[in-house]
Simulated scan of single mutants.
Amino acid sequence: MKNIFLNIHGFGSSGSNSKAAALAQVFPDYNIISPDLPPDPQESLAIIEDNVLENCDKPLVLQGSSMGGLYSLVMHMRHGVPALLINPALAPGDLIAAKVGEPYEFSNGDSIIVSEEHAERFFTVQREVEDGVMAGMVDGRQILALIGEQDELLDQNRMKDILRRAGAGIISYDTDHRFSIFEEVLGSDGRVRDFLVGAH
């Protein structure tokens, strides 16, 4: 049976993001699940977890970008699902806390004012990742991270430090936070293709 891809978009994006489109273009014969996620991290994790559990008897592989990379790593820790992380935002509480009081617009036109409560919800997820890494809950053979060294949003040295402590595989590219070369990477980098189709 071919792997099923569960695509997890980043904060403010949607299930029809460019990463889902790239998967569909490069792997037209594979089943792709790509849900729309709300701003709240716990609600997002609940939706993702429902999808993971619904497919627990199938060869599922997660692909998460930015905040979706964070969520994918959490699902790996909880359920052992292989995950491709694209510029994962592994310290989300710090990112969201810096935006408290500011409006944030989503790709579907909705907007929110970022609150301290919102930031604390992301700190809760951040702590789950930190605790999981310390407890050795990551199988490094099942995690591959793609890092854009020109990322304008994340401190990639910090992200790589977390990933190395987790034992994850890391491949660096000369690209930005949006990882705009993703479709090209899928088509040309055998390491990434082999991970997606060969995990399990």
Rank of each mutant, 00 (worst) to 15 (best):
N3C: 12
F5H: 04
L6F: 05
I8A: 03
S13F: 11
S13E: 12
S14M: 15
A22P: 07
Q25M: 10
P28M: 11
Y30K: 07
I33F: 02
D36T: 07
P38L: 04
P39T: 12
P39Q: 05
D40K: 00
D40N: 07
S44H: 00
I47K: 01
I48M: 06
N51T: 07
V52P: 04
C56H: 13
L60E: 06
L60Y: 00
L62M: 10
S65A: 15
S65P: 04
M67G: 04
L70S: 03
Y71E: 09
L73G: 04
L73M: 15
A83Q: 07
N87K: 03
L90W: 07
P92D: 08
A97I: 07
K99C: 14
V100A: 04
E102P: 00
P103C: 13
N108M: 12
G109F: 10
G109Y: 09
V114I: 15
V114K: 01
V114G: 05
S115P: 10
E116M: 11
R121W: 00
T124Y: 07
V125W: 05
Q126Y: 06
R127T: 11
V129F: 05
V129A: 05
E130F: 12
G136L: 11
G140K: 11
A145M: 07
G148R: 02
G148H: 01
Q150H: 13
D151P: 08
L153V: 15
L153P: 06
L154D: 06
K160I: 14
D161C: 10
I162F: 09
L163I: 05
A166H: 03
G169N: 11
G169M: 13
S172Y: 10
Y173A: 13
F179Q: 08
F179H: 12
F182M: 08
L186W: 03
G187W: 03
S188Q: 11
G190W: 00
D194F: 13
L196Q: 01
A199H: 06
A199N: 03
